[in-house]
Every structure is written in C-alpha cells, then in structure tokens.
Design a protein around this nucleic acid. Sequence first.
DNA 1: TGTAATTACGGGATACGTAAAGATG
DNA 2: CATCTTTACGTATCCCGTAATTACA
Lengths: 312, 312
Amino acid sequence: MDYLAAMRAFVRAVELGSFSKAAREMDMQVSTVSRYVSGLETDLSAALLNRSTRALRLTEAGAAFYERAAAILAEVEDARLETTALNARPQGLLRIGAPGAFGRRHLAPHLKEFRELHPDIRLDLSLTEATVDLIDSGLDVAIRIGALPDSSLVARRLAAHRRLLVASPAYLHRHGAPREPEDIADHHCLLFAIQWRDDAWFHRPQDRADAEASPVKIHGEVRADDSDVLLQAARDGLGIGLLPTWILADDLQSGRLEALMTDRHWSIAPGPEAAIHAIYPPKKTVSPKVRAFLDFIVERFGSPPYWEMAEG
Amino acid sequence: MDYLAAMRAFVRAVELGSFSKAAREMDMQVSTVSRYVSGLETDLSAALLNRSTRALRLTEAGAAFYERAAAILAEVEDARLETTALNARPQGLLRIGAPGAFGRRHLAPHLKEFRELHPDIRLDLSLTEATVDLIDSGLDVAIRIGALPDSSLVARRLAAHRRLLVASPAYLHRHGAPREPEDIADHHCLLFAIQWRDDAWFHRPQDRADAEASPVKIHGEVRADDSDVLLQAARDGLGIGLLPTWILADDLQSGRLEALMTDRHWSIAPGPEAAIHAIYPPKKTVSPKVRAFLDFIVERFGSPPYWEMAEG
DNA sequence: TGTAATTACGGGATACGTAAAGATG
DNA sequence: CATCTTTACGTATCCCGTAATTACA
C-alpha cells in the first residue's frame, strides 16, 4: 500500500468529514479511500475512524495519528518544494576543477564577472594538473584538456586544443630554427611531465597519408608538470617548447616567443581531435549552477576563443 | 511510485554509501534502489546523487533532501509506533452510554472496581433513556435493553431481559391481584413512555400456539420515561408496573413488591428474545478499553446475572 | 576479471474501477 | 429514495526479478 497516499486520503477524509467528499476532491474512487483507511487501521492495528453512513468520528488513536500524519504530509511537501526550488535557480557551491595554468589564465579573469552574474553561486576553483575523479573529489564540473578517455561523463567542447612549437628569439639565434621534424632531435626540448609523457612530438605528415608514421625522438634537460613553468623556460631560452595556443597568445604577439614550423605541414601530437572540454556527471537534469557556468564559459571563450583570435 | 519506500532506499543508500549495500540490507533488488532514486530525482527535477561505480556523492539538493527525508521517515515510524502503542493497552477516555435506571443501578456500583482494575481508562458515563446514535454521540460502547433494531453495530449479549408484573402489597390489598390477562384491563397500570409505548402487555398464551393473539388493552394514570420513577410509583401503590427484573430484585426480596402471574402461562411483551446488550462499532480491532469494559461487565453480571439470582 | 550501477524485458502480484450490497436518515 | 460506506470481482497496470549492458578498478 502506498502509505503516503493512504495518509493523504485519511487526513482529507477527516478534514472533510466524509470519504465521498475526500474521494471527489482527490479525484479517486470512494472505494480507494475506504481501502486506504482500512489499510492504515490494519497496519496500526487500531481503529482510526468510527464511521456510520452519516458521520465520521475520530477515535483517540485516530486523532493522534491524524495530527502526526498531517504534519508528515506537510513536511513531505515542504521537502519536495524546497529541494526542487534549490535546483530551480543557479545557486549554491560550484566546485570547478581545471588544470593550473589554464585555470589561472582563462578562468580566474572571469570569476568576477561570473559572480556578478550569479551572486548566489559560491565558487571553489580546484586547480590541479592531475586528472582526478570528478565524483570522488566532489567536483561539479572540470576542464579537461586533450583527448578524453571514454567515460560516462558528459563532455562539452569548449575550444580546439592546438599546440605549437615555440622558442625565444635568443634561443633561435643561438641554435637556429628547426625546419623539419628530424631537426628537433638536435634541440633542447622542454618536456611536460604528467599528462602527455610523449617523447615523440610529430606524427605522420598531414598531406602524405601514405607515408610511414615518423615519430621523432626528442630529448631535453628541463621537464615540469606545469605549463607555466615550461612557458617561463621557453621565454628564458632554455629550449623549444610544445605549448598550447591558449598559453602563448601574449608571448607570440609581443614577440617574446616565436612559433616554429607553422606551415602545418606536420601534424603535431596530440593531433587535431584533441580539444578543451568541460566535463560533468551524466544526469538528466544538469543543475542550474553547472549549466550557468557552462553557458557562461562557452560564451566567454567564443568560437574560436579569444586566445586564437590574437594569432589570426 | 511508493514515495516512502523510495525515500527509505535513498536514505539507506546515502548512509551505506552504496546502492548494492542498501539493496542487500533492505532485501530488495539493486535495480529497485536505482529506480527509486531515479524516480525521486525525476520527481524533484534535481540530481540527488552523483554516482560512479566506486563512489556515491550527494549533491547539494541531495544533501538537503536527505536531511528532510531521514527526519520524515523517523516521524512516520514514530507515528506508527505511538498510534499502535496507544491501542496496545487499555487506556484513554471510555464513553459509555446506558439507560439511566440501569446505569445508576448496575453500572455505577462497579465503576470503582473497574477504575482500580484499569487506572488508565478514564470514564464518561452518559445516561439517557433515548436511543442515541453511537457514532454521532461519540460513544465507545452503549448498553441497550430490549429488542435490537437491525444495525451494523456489534451487539454482545449480557443478560436476558425479562419483565414482571408487580404491585405493592397495599395496592393488591385494595384492588386484588389479577389472575388472567383480561383482569389487567380493570387495573391501574404504570406506563413507560419512551421506548415501548405498548398499550398491550400480553401476547398469545405460550402453551396454546393455535390460539389467537389476545392483546389486552391497558390504561393508567401514571406515565414516565424513567424506570425508577415507575418503580417508586409501584412501591407507593399507584398501580401495577411492568418492570424489568434487574430493577426489581431488592423490592421483591424485601416484599415491598409482589410479582403477579408468575406462572409463565402468559407471554409478556417484549417477549423472551429481548435481552440486555452492549453494542459497539463494528471494527476488526476493538479497542482495548472497550474490550476491557466488555470483559469486565460480562464477568460482573455473570450468567445468569446477580439480579436474577435473588429471585431464584 | 570482478564489482557496481543502469536498462531492458517478461511475468505476476496488486491496486484500481465498476458495480452491487448494506446501512441510514 | 438518496446518499454513503463497504465489499466483491475482473482487468489493467505497475512493480519486481532476472539478466544483459556499461562503467570502472
């Protein structure tokens, strides 16, 4: 028996003083009301209502149970409404995960505006290079850069992820600029340590699909798990970096770094399918705070995002 | 969907951190738990739990709903237990209805003992000659004397209801004693006004089934709706009374009144099928207080009741 | 590979609606 | 006779259990 439905029927019957009225009001059969009340009486092994054709009268047990039941029903409704309302507006604590360099560079600058737009959303920005489990770590949404592993998580594509070979003018002056993938073998390469421990930066030539894959072994003396560290190293002329466009915009524009082999003749790992995604748990109902963040960040980044505009 | 069951499943899943554990503990299928939680999420249009294979994590909405749901479940259990307990022991207010003369004479003397036996039952003795509706008037149990109208009420037979023709020795000395029904027509009869406005006291002779019914018209100058009034009138020699044995015991024994035509040759209205009953609403579960009263009164009255013993 | 959650599906218990019966004024 | 509650009964629904699917370590 649906206990809540039974309590509802009982309470309304008491309040209206009639099974028939209660049934009409609640749009159910009189027989259902009767069964419900009987069911409660059986469950409680106590008579709740003495009923004749003309009158309903609460027993003592019935009066006690009526008070309780009415309160409980009100609380259920309250809980439903409050929980629903909690999700009707963007509000609450939004926990965002993102790689450090990306977060500092492309999320942090927008937080002020986001807060003004959604003052009821409190923010927790968790920056880490490591790919952590969204659910274990309690994140609502995370930014992932690169190829996505198959996952049950929903991914929303924010922008392409493209990497360029870069070096400082000083470095190029000293070592010369590479023209072909093979040249890289003789250069000092700045290695990113965690996510892509690729020791081969180049894939098969884009315009020669029949050619063999030609990975080029690279080597380097500087390795870090933080893109900003590698960026700084590149600026300082410590070697050639393979860095994402979203970290390079300023340095390329100011000339602190120069892009190498930009003729696109060579496909550079991790390939064009890689992108920047926002990922979040797969729910029928995405919470408004997450949706607000997604909408906001998609709009801010644009298509193409602003860091690619500088380059064009 | 059984909302209470769904809340139970959700709450246990949260507390145990796993749908599987919750399902095992609650002896239901994992699929059921999953469906229940999904059902709640649909109803609330809010995600409650972010779940991966390894972890369950409450959303904000989930955390809010969990608190509410746990409280509600506890209250439901509480209400059930309290209501059940309320009916487990004889207690509360017991409202007894009875005819005035009977109540004063045969209930009132036992109240002290009943209270000592069941100190948690408070008593409300409502004495009236009129037959009132049990449910309308809020009585738990009533004593009815005489033939019962067909009714949905349950009737427990307490004792036979027998009436005798009586008069005081003084009256008999003055007017003589009737020997045959026909003699009654010449006597002063004391009439009971409400319940049986019978102006014919005698039925067909018991041993002559073939004989015609021979009602005997009676007449009298004293009429009352209270048996004690008629009793007093009989004692005072105002006429012949047709009074129940339960009111006559003392007066017959002491000789203040004499029974007339006791040879049982004549059937006296309302006939031998009439009895004293306790009636109460027809419930599968008779409340303990009512049951306690019934048991008590049946035992006190005995079989045959004490007022008939005196006569024998 | 093993555990966990979800989903699909088929069979069966159950709850609902209709209708008749019983009660009451 | 009209209204109200209860009960009986047949059907349709929904819910459960099994099992296949997917995810994840």
